[in-house]
């Protein structure tokens, strides 16, 4: 599966999301490709992803996209990432 981590600039919060998601997926025993995209390019890339990870602030700016969107509010809390990814995969 492919997960797109979406942030504003493509190098700050999106990277944090990718790092946390990598750890969470390891814990959950799930294989996935993780890619970071800024909000501008995310819309074009969205259709190729199975899941989108982003913040609650940016999610509305994505507009209508096909994949399920998982929003994270605490980017350094691994528990939140694990719980939300687990719930999204069910």
């Amino acid at each position: 599966m492919k997960i797109l981590a979406v942030c504003g600039m493509g190098l700050g919060t999106g990277l944090l999301l990718r790092m946390q998601a990598e750890k969470a997926l390891r814990e959950l025993g799930i294989q996935a490709d993780l890619e970071v995209a800024d909000i501008g390019t995310a819309r074009a890339l969205a259709s190729s992803a199975d899941l989108i990870l982003t913040s609650q602030e940016l999610a509305p700016q994505l507009g209508k996209v096909t994949p399920k969107i998982v929003t994270i509010s605490n980017f350094i809390d691994l528990r939140e990432m694990v719980d939300k990814l687990r719930a999204a995969m069910e």
Partner: peptide, 9 residues
């Protein structure tokens, strides 16, 4: 431009 999404925790 993008709002307070930079408040990461």
């Amino acid at each position: 431009q993008l709002g307070p999404y930079i408040v990461i925790a």
